[in-house]
Design a protein around this nucleic acid. Sequence first.
DNA 1: AGTGACGCCTGGGAGC
DNA 2: TGCTCCCAGGCGTCAC
Length: 304
Amino acid sequence: MPELPEVEVVRLGLERGVVGRTVEQVSVGRARSVRRHVEGAGDFVARLQGRTVLSAHRRGKHLWLPLDSGDALLGHLGMSGQLLVVPAEAPDPKHLHVRLRFADAGRELRFVDQRTFGGLFVVAGGEPVPPALAHVARDPLDPAFDDEAFVAALRRRRTGVKRALLDQTLVSGIGNIYADEALWRSQLHGNRPTDGLSRPAVRRLLLSAREVLGEAIASGGTSFDALYVSTEGVSGLFERSLAAYGREGEACLRCGAPIRRESFMNRSSFSCPRCQPRPAGSTKPAQASRSSSARTAGGSLPSA
DNA sequence: AGTGACGCCTGGGAGC
DNA sequence: TGCTCCCAGGCGTCAC
């Protein structure tokens, strides 16, 4: 699943692959992939054709490419979206939904998305941030991220710390995988109430999140299957560095206790029962309904 | 305003 | 073998 590190790897690929080039032809094979472009697919195409890509930006899990028209091509990969920069003669994959060809007749940009939770749309204004992304908080790797404001805002919340980490209006870029990894590193259970955390504890959590995100970017992101790849189609290697996510029953890398899996918001949470004790008063959540790996198809982690 | 539940999607594995 | 069910999960929307 693309979270901040995977999206950043894609952004770097777009910077290399499409910035400075002029769009010549756009085709939309599946209207759902541009559904957030409210004026429709025809307008989406019209606002891209003939435009030059100025730069490639990211906030959290959102990407945008400012254009010389003042608009920006905005994209979100959702759960399975891919932006590929490939030779035009490469065969079309099954879930190819949008194609951009450029005036230089070089590699084309393709939006491929199996589950179609992601999408592309054109919005007005790309600098410094499109208004359409105003609701998305800065991410922990943004130089302008305000640590103390985050610490205060998180402690004002009255919810569990994992929910808060996943709230893109509080801090962006963190999804289920990196939330579990950051919580493991800072030895916090995701059910810990945010208003009961000390300032130092929240600062440690933020530091852990920053560390794990940075390390994942350096590894090219986390790929469990073919659903996340770079613009060149390459898988990331961070999966082998995960300490909690997907490691149910395996030994905690810190204390050796078997990692547990719990059901959380209709998905899975992984944590160490010894290093990350459930908060007092927190009722034991229902166990995840299946004891097998939470991995989707094609998972390749050793199971023991 | 803050919080949480729900629906949208598809492919593949488990189980029958 | 073939069918059905379940599951992964980001985020927009809506209800409370």
